[in-house]
Amino acid sequence: MSTLEVRDLRKSFGAIDAVAGLSFTLAPGEMLAVIGPNGAGKSTCFNMLNGQLRPDAGKILLAGPNGTMQDITGLPPREIWRLGVGRTFQITATFASMTVRENVQTALLSHHRRTWRFWRPANRHAGPEADRLLARVGMQSQADRPAGILAYGDLKRLELAIALANAPRLLLMDEPTAGMAPAERTALMTLTRDIARTEGVAVLFTEHDMDVVFGVADRILVLNRGHLIAEGPPAEIRENPEIRAVYLGAHI
């Protein structure tokens, strides 16, 4: 049983095939890393998965709550989110005019379908649940600070808490540790792995820091020019001479 199934996904921009026939599956609780040089098609792939881009061809199937696979190809981001897909962005996207807790509460309001209410103050909604999520990512002590003044690492953790608000089955993380200090990176991704394991969330992430990739990923996809050139557990990828030559460099 898998959480996500991608079949022959394609997208081109003019003459350039950004993603040229990509297929893979992702199991619950699994940490799957996508790596590849710049322009390999990682971001395009991500943007198709979360609905920002419409694929030219191919299918994206997501496991529903009862285990049946639903076709989510080409749905808009907000509908994909409704079906249980959380996401973090390469450049953090949070609500700067709200406090940390309110950020999570806003996501919870949407998850609980309470957005179209006009009377009861929003910050009284699901406070304990928001605090639990913040505690999960170690942000509870900053719950009342404005999100606009957080340090970058804290913003990344806040994003993770927001992404978890709809109890997702699939988490998409685009460069989750970009801009963080090395120690923070490992901490964040270890935390993510814990969540994936305990809650059965499937995580798909891209990452530049190879220490992080090989430290936390269960499996790695290697893309180059839109094509999948290798797939396997970290140890296997590390030993693959072709990948060493094409992309990773001798130092791995």
Binding site: R78, G86, T94, S97, M98, E102, A165
Partner: peptide
Amino acid sequence: RILFAPFGFALRATRDSPLRAAAIGLD
């Protein structure tokens, strides 16, 4: 009052970060 209610938060969310707003299901 509306601005401090869920609707107001959702509206402000779409202003603060359209990307994030869409990613948490806001229309």
